[in-house]
């Protein structure tokens, strides 16, 4: 039930956003995620964006994993 899916914010109007998730567009309230803007990726849960995803952190994690796996 705690499943949340990442999606890209494509439009925000009156704090309701259209969020593209794997090719489909869902509506989500931005009330719990006020710092997210159009173009950001957010996690969607039960009709709300609950957190903005941090691309720099994602890249750092992948970089660390590649080093662990000894992949250049």
């Amino acid at each position: 039930m705690c499943l949340s899916v990442p999606g890209r914010v494509v439009e925000i109007q009156n704090n309701m956003a259209k969020v593209e998730v794997g090719g489909t567009v869902r509506e989500a309230s931005m009330d719990l995620c006020p710092d997210a803007a159009v173009g950001d990726y957010v996690l969607i849960h039960a009709g709300f964006a609950i957190q903005k995803l941090d691309e720099e952190e994602a890249l750092e994690t992948l970089d660390l994993l590649r080093k662990m796996a000894e992949i250049p």
Binding site: P6, G22, Y41, L53, E55, A58, L59, L62, L65, R66, M68, A69, E70, I71
Partner: peptide, 20 residues
Amino acid sequence: MKFVDEFRNKEIAQGVIRRI
């Protein structure tokens, strides 16, 4: 960055399994 497929890379997975 789509935050999904990047974290499903088979080659990296095999390397991390070796570390485990």
